[in-house]
Simulated assay, not measured.
Amino acid sequence: MAFADKYKVQPLPQAPRGSMRAPISPRERARAKLLAALKVQHELLAAELKGETFMVTRMGKQMAPRAFWQTTAVGVAFTPRFGNQFLFDKGQGILVGELATLSQVLRDFEEAVKLGEFDAQITEIAESRGSRGTSPTVPGKRGRGRPRRS
């Protein structure tokens, strides 16, 4: 029996463009981005406690991620970021006694992000950065780059 005899080939219903992904709000997307960064911070902390270096691959290059903490004279200061901006006001952070106790602070912070406690700060930072990837439409201009030849 041939394949064409066994199965009926027919036109498929057209799905609206971009509907392959589940719709996600900008707030949920930003929260997911911060949670992904926290996962990297957990891995970075585990490597640092073992005395190893931790690298991530971005755009085909090995890079060391920026830690959300700094060692100070009084202990470890936890200063989380969203993108390249701090979530807390400048010069503020959470003081942790030792690097080993930072793991619990990271877990508690991750839970707070999941509950939406930092949505206001995330939204403020995202709005201050502006929209990326879209440019305002200017009459007479057709997108980016060189004008098309006539």
Rank of each mutant, 00 (worst) to 15 (best):
residue 25 S to A: 08
residue 27 R to L: 10
residue 28 E to M: 14
residue 29 R to A: 09
residue 29 R to N: 14
residue 30 A to S: 15
residue 31 R to K: 12
residue 33 K to F: 12
residue 35 L to A: 14
residue 36 A to Y: 02
residue 38 L to Y: 02
residue 39 K to P: 07
residue 42 H to R: 01
residue 42 H to N: 00
residue 42 H to F: 07
residue 43 E to S: 08
residue 44 L to D: 02
residue 44 L to V: 01
residue 44 L to A: 09
residue 45 L to S: 14
residue 45 L to W: 13
residue 46 A to L: 15
residue 47 A to G: 14
residue 47 A to L: 13
residue 52 E to G: 12
residue 53 T to L: 12
residue 56 V to W: 10
residue 58 R to A: 04
residue 60 G to T: 10
residue 65 P to E: 13
residue 65 P to N: 15
residue 70 Q to C: 10
residue 71 T to L: 01
residue 71 T to M: 03
residue 72 T to C: 14
residue 73 A to M: 11
residue 73 A to W: 11
residue 74 V to H: 10
residue 74 V to S: 13
residue 75 G to E: 07
residue 76 V to Y: 08
residue 77 A to E: 11
residue 79 T to P: 05
residue 80 P to C: 01
residue 80 P to T: 11
residue 87 L to I: 03
residue 89 D to T: 02
residue 89 D to L: 01
residue 94 I to F: 13
residue 95 L to G: 02
residue 100 A to C: 06
residue 102 L to F: 08
residue 104 Q to Y: 03
residue 110 E to I: 07
residue 112 A to H: 07
residue 115 L to A: 15
residue 115 L to Y: 10
residue 116 G to S: 05
residue 119 D to G: 08
residue 120 A to G: 09
residue 122 I to F: 10
residue 123 T to K: 00
residue 125 I to Y: 11
residue 126 A to P: 04
residue 126 A to Q: 04
residue 127 E to G: 11
residue 127 E to M: 13
residue 128 S to C: 05
residue 129 R to N: 00
residue 131 S to N: 12
residue 131 S to Q: 03
residue 131 S to Y: 04
residue 133 G to I: 11
residue 135 S to A: 10
residue 136 P to E: 11
residue 137 T to Y: 11
residue 139 P to E: 03
residue 140 G to I: 04
residue 140 G to N: 00
residue 142 R to M: 14
